[in-house]
Design a protein around this nucleic acid. Structure first.
Lengths: 114, 114
DNA sequence: CCCATAGTTCGGAAAATCGGAACTAGTGAA
DNA sequence: TTCACTAGTTCCGATTTTCCGAACTATGGG
């Protein structure tokens, strides 16, 4: 399994970002990665919520986030290290991520828990 | 056909807004309504781009925008008057809409033309 | 090598989207 | 009233996307 594909900054498309974050699970995953800086990843996240997200679903969620340019994934031994590309994205689309994360935080408050 | 359903401010969900605007066509429609204040609607929009959007698709696009709380639609004689609910949304989710519209404007520039 | 863990890929079922054709609503005219 | 025209919605089948269990791949120890 060779290194993953990560789009470069100039290839980021707003529709992909919005689509990726329009799913509450993915948004929660991303929020977690973004606020904690780094999360090593799937199974660790799966255990956090009361609802179990199957690992094949988690895998595809990460793929969507990755291909939207939201996270960077690197293999670290057996597991995965995911980091948010907030700074890069904020440079390209200023204020977008903060506004979205804030909107989710406002709405429901703890509704998006994972 | 009685008045449409419009969610109230406190019922707005970020995922619905992001989903609605994650489609470039819908985003372009909304951007137009938002910047022009008001657009009376479907067939008028359909003619603007070089690509023809069928009216059944336009109708469902408006439905998605409406139910996400992004636009308000009222019948005005034989046609429809659509207005953006920017102020209300910005009060609930500050900065969200400007950031998204700006992101689309940045990306592609005229890419999202309609 | 064998086993365990972390994650990806495959494949079929369920859900969402697209768009043409038919239908409904409002308006004006005869 | 009835006919015609326009604006938009609804219906429904075809295509596309999403979901998730099962099978597979990769890495690291014993």
């Amino acid at each position: 399994m060779r290194p993953f594909f990560h789009p470069s900054i100039e290839d980021l498309r707003p529709e992909a970002i919005l689509h990726a974050l329009s799913d509450p699970d993915r948004a929660a995953i991303f929020a977690r990665i973004a606020t904690q800086g780094c999360v090593g990843s799937c199974s660790r996240l799966a255990a956090l919520g009361e609802r179990v997200i199957p690992k094949s679903s988690l895998s595809s969620h990460f793929k969507v986030l990755r291909e939207a340019g939201l996270v960077r994934s690197e293999r670290q031994g057996v597991e995965m290290r995911n980091s948010a590309r907030c700074a890069e994205i904020d440079q390209r689309f200023p204020g977008l991520l903060p506004a979205i994360l804030n909107a989710y935080a406002m709405s429901g408050g703890g509704d998006v828990k994972l």
